[in-house]
């Protein structure tokens, strides 16, 4: 916001905290929706909301590049793939019969509370981190060029390795998801063959 000095100072003074709490109050119910909603496809869409609010948090932390990458890769790419997988694996019949959450609710709540308390106490106990919040964050242009330079100098090995990982994941995903005759189809086939021989045995195979 160059050219708007008064607006900028006003925003820096008041807006950051308010926007943070606004995003948090939106994001926490959405995250609950992701894990608890009965309709699993809807929870897939809520996941998009969670990722978008997290992108908002990244902007507040002056990580503009990461926020945009978050929207582009997480908010749209990954989540859409998840939603499509849900639609492929979740015909309506199964959705009705299956409760959203399992019998492990008690242990799950315990695990969640335990993890949260661990992390929170660790946060509170560390009072002498070398925090430099008084140092101004890099401007968006500097942030961008710093990230680009680091990726191609200090982190170039990691960068190349990530590309190999992505290639391997791409090939692996294609191989895994490639259509092949499914086992239950084969079962049905053999069941049909058996049916011709003896109807009793065919019934057993179907039950198994």
């Amino acid at each position: 916001m160059e050219g708007f000095p008064q607006l900028t100072t006003w925003a820096q003074a008041n807006v950051e905290q308010a926007v943070f709490y606004l995003l948090a109050v939106i994001a926490i119910p959405l995250a609950y929706g992701v894990v608890c909603d009965r309709n699993i496809i809807r929870s897939g869409f809520l996941l998009i909301g969670v990722f978008s609010t997290i992108a908002g948090l990244f902007i507040l932390l002056s990580a503009q590049f990461l926020a945009l990458a978050q929207i582009m890769i997480y908010g749209v790419g990954i989540t859409l793939v998840v939603v499509i997988a849900l639609m492929l694996t979740n015909p309506k019949a199964e959705k009705e019969s299956m409760p959203a959450l399992s019998i492990h609710k008690g242990p799950a709540i315990f695990v969640a509370c335990f993890l949260f308390m661990c992390v929170y106490l660790a946060l509170r106990s560390a009072e002498n981190w070398p925090v430099k919040t008084d140092v101004a964050a890099l401007s968006a242009a500097e942030n961008l060029s710093r990230i680009g330079q680091s990726l191609l100098t200090n982190y170039s090995f990691h960068f190349e390795f990530a590309s190999i990982l992505l290639l391997a994941a791409l090939i692996g995903a294609v191989m895994l998801a490639k259509a092949e005759p499914a086992v239950h189809d084969l079962n049905e086939l053999s069941a049909n063959e058996d049916k011709l021989k003896s109807s009793e045995r065919a019934d057993d195979v179907v039950k198994v």
Binding site: L68, I71, L80, A140, A141
Partner: peptide
């Protein structure tokens, strides 16, 4: 005019499919 310019435009333009 953002320094992230065209990347911002492309990131936002990928949302409508949702």
């Amino acid at each position: 005019n953002l320094p992230t310019g065209i990347f911002y435009v492309l990131a936002i333009a990928s949302i409508p499919v949702v």
